[in-house]
Design a protein around this nucleic acid. Structure first.
Lengths: 239, 239
DNA sequence: GAAATAGTGTCTTTAAGACAGTATGTG
DNA sequence: CACATACTGTCTTAAAGACACTATTTC
């Protein structure tokens, strides 16, 4: 393509047929040491009664982040949520009706802040059929077994798991899934849940305390039936 | 937003005003132990005579990857290029003419495969004004100093550097910037150039050889004025 | 043989894993 | 006092860094 073509295309872009742009958001939390994700039942064709991630089209005067927040709004969470862009999915046939390119986001939240899902929503357990950071689609289960997942959303959730596992190796991701104050064992459990494998406790404690990311609050657990653990919070100013 | 609203919006989406969707591609290589990126001079307003990344609008029946390949086609490289999605940029005012959301890609290529840039193109040196994986925009320099960079493209290139530095910690990224067969020292130089700091040679050799990613070809350098180093290539089947 | 980088062997330092032993809550 | 988990200290193991020394090519 020459600069001339670029020029022509740029100025007439408004009139060319072009892809629609959407956002989909995977709201992830941990329940019973298992990753869960918020799914919504589709009431219309295609994929009627299958389950999808909350999503919406991006409006003309709206940032991607604002669209993602709007997709989550009124859904299930109270208050602000850690949200980060994941990946943009653009397969030609990912939506059979029309060409839709979707910018996927993931959001992490303490399960205590999630309201009970209403009719047509549920928190499905994420079953990861691969090890490490291999990647690929995942299964999403409710009490009765695997859900039928609409569009490419099982692949999107798989990409979330892959991303979370990658980030844990160099960034303190897990605390967004915990209350503001937490114990080292709670944080370790979050890491183990994301990684899908046990972690050496001694080494984990040393690494976390040496990282400088954790600030002791001076408080301790109460009423736990054993020696209470110290409560920590994340260091506020991280680059 | 309720499911009902989703439904209405979905089916009438074609008629609502919505963002344009583009791709921009940062073609990165290494020249004289410095990261370089292909830039193109804008011939039109806005930002006339500033420099931008090659980019194009996404056509209706075209994947994002195909659009990225099209943006690079006929530009400067011979043959296929390693290309990967980077991030999607959606600031409202990133293009002053109209709302354009851009899916950015980066491409890595051996400098020997780049033809000399024609008029209106150049390979600018990337000057990174931050350490480690801090992130942020970078400067792009030609012989006479910093270029004026159009739109948010300095931020896009900064994101490429940040991504490359992150990937080096767990993936063998650098070999795409080298010929098919290369020495350990050449690979180390690539890593040092990306990270922006020197690497311990002994440890680097041990890590690379222990990783199992490198396959000795049995060949050696020739005519180098010193003891010739063994040539390696990357292991073919990596997950 | 001089120059230059490749490659080997070994010692030191640091982080991870293993594990014993002590500490401090609840019941 | 029994139990359960928190925490501390020390030993072992593995990886990274430092460095001395030998190897192989061109000129």
């Amino acid at each position: 393509m020459t600069a001339e073509n670029d020029f022509l295309e740029e100025y007439s872009a408004e009139s060319f047929p072009r892809p629609s742009l959407a956002v989909d958001v995977a709201l992830v939390t941990i329940i019973n040491k298992q990753l869960h994700v918020l799914m919504i039942r589709r009431v219309e064709h295609p994929d009627q009664d299958h389950w999808q991630l909350p999503g919406t089209f991006v409006h003309l005067a709206e940032t991607l982040e604002a669209a993602a927040a709007r997709a989550l709004a009124e859904k299930t969470v109270a208050g602000p949520v850690f949200t980060e862009q994941l990946y943009t999915f653009g397969r030609l046939d990912r939506d059979p009706r029309t060409r839709v390119v979707s910018v996927a986001y993931y959001a992490l939240v303490d399960p205590a802040r999630i309201r009970d899902p209403i009719e047509g929503q549920l928190l499905g357990a994420i079953a990861v059929p691969w090890q490490g950071e291999t990647g690929g689609p995942v299964q999403i289960l409710d009490q009765s077994g695997p859900l039928e997942v609409a569009f490419d959303h099982a692949e999107i959730v798989g990409t979330v798991v892959k991303r979370l596992r990658g980030k844990l190796n160099y960034a303190p991701v897990g605390y967004e899934l915990l209350p503001r104050r937490f114990t080292l064992l709670e944080l370790q459990t979050v890491h183990e849940t994301i990684m899908g494998e046990p972690i050496n406790k001694d080494s984990f404690r040393r690494r976390m305390l040496a990282s400088g990311e954790l600030v002791p609050t001076g408080e301790k657990q109460r009423g736990v039936g054993h020696r209470p653990a110290s409560l920590y919070r994340m260091a506020p100013s991280r680059p």
